[in-house]
Nucleic acid binder design. Structure first.
Lengths: 144, 144
DNA sequence: TGACAAAGGTTAGATGTCTAACTAGAATGC
DNA sequence: GCATTCTAGTTAGACATCTAACCTTTGTCA
C-alpha cells in the first residue's frame, strides 16, 4: 500500500479526460469537452431534459451547464424550449444535427470503455468498479 | 459490471479535489488549490526543485506550473533562484514562511488519506490501488 | 567552430469551472 | 390573499488549466 490513491485518481481522471477530448476532436467535434459529451449522452438517452437534469447528470453546477448548453446551441446540436408545466424551467432537446451525432457517440462510447478497461480482466474490472463505488458511497464529508 | 468507470473516476477525483480545497481553506490557505499543495509537498520532500520537476510531480504543464509558482511566490511561501549549473533553469525553494506550513501539511496529508480510504478495509485499499496502477500502466494510447 | 536542434521557462489567449449575486416563477403558510 | 421562501436558470467575475508562440541557453554534429 503506497497511500497514493489521490495521485492515482488524479492521473486516471486526467487520462480519461484527455482520451475523450481527443476522440471528440477526431470525430469532427473539436472544441467540445467531455462535459459537452455528458450533456449530449443524456439527451441521446432521454430525448429531452431540463438544465437541472443535465447538470446533475454531468456532475457540474447549473452555471457551468448554462455555458455548456450555450455552446451546443450555438453549434446547432441542441435547442432550448420553454416548459409548459413550469415557466421557470428550460427544456433542452436535440436538433436533427444533434441526432446525427448519435452513431459517432455510440462508437466513441464503445471505444472509451475499451480504453478504460484495457489491461484488466473482467473480474478485475468488476472489482475496481465495486471498490470505487464503495469508497464513494459513504457520507459526503466524514471529517467535517 | 456497469461499465461506468469513467463516471466513477470523475466523481472520485472531483470529491478528492473538493476535500483538499476545503482542507487548505480551513488551514488558512484559502485561495490555494490542490495543485499548489502538490508543489509545496514536493518542496517539503526535496527542499528545492526546478520548475520541470515540480510540473512533473504535480502532473501539470510547464505553463501551469509557472502560474502556480507565481502565486506561491507572491504569497511569500517560495522564492525563485537562478541555477548555477544551467542558466535556463530556475530553482524553487521554500521560504521560512513556506517551511512554517510543514506541520499543517502533514496534518492535511494524514487526514486526506483517512478520507480517501474511509469505508475500505486494508485489503480493499491495496486492491484498489493495485488495479488503478495496473490500468494506468499500459501504453499511453492503445487506440491510436 | 558554427549552424541547428533540443530543452527550460514565460507569456498570451482561450476555455471549463466555480461561487456569488441576480431575475423570475412556484410553493408555502398565516 | 399576500408575504415569505424556495427553486430554475442566467450573468459576472475569478481562477486553474491548456496549447501555441516565444526567448534564452545548452547540446549536437559535421
Amino acid at each position: 500500500m503506497k497511500r497514493n490513491l489521490g495521485h492515482l485518481l488524479s492521473r486516471a481522471h486526467d487520462r480519461a479526460g484527455r482520451w475523450m477530448a481527443a476522440a471528440l476532436a477526431e470525430a469532427g467535434l473539436a472544441g467540445l469537452s467531455p462535459s459537452h459529451g455528458d450533456v449530449l449522452a443524456r439527451l441521446f438517452g432521454r430525448g429531452v431534459a431540463t438544465m437541472r437534469e443535465l447538470a446533475a447528470f454531468a456532475g457540474r453546477t447549473k452555471a457551468t451547464t448554462t455555458v455548456l448548453v450555450d455552446k451546443l446551441e450555438a453549434l446547432g446540436y441542441v435547442r432550448r424550449e420553454a416548459s409548459e408545466r413550469d415557466a421557470r424551467s428550460v427544456l433542452v432537446r436535440l436538433t436533427p444535427a444533434g441526432e446525427a451525432l448519435r452513431p459517432a457517440f455510440r462508437s466513441i462510447s464503445r471505444r472509451f470503455c475499451a480504453f478504460l478497461y484495457a489491461g484488466l480482466t473482467r473480474e478485475e474490472s468488476e472489482t475496481l468498479e465495486r471498490l470505487l463505488e464503495k469508497s464513494l458511497s459513504r457520507d459526503e464529508d466524514p471529517t467535517a
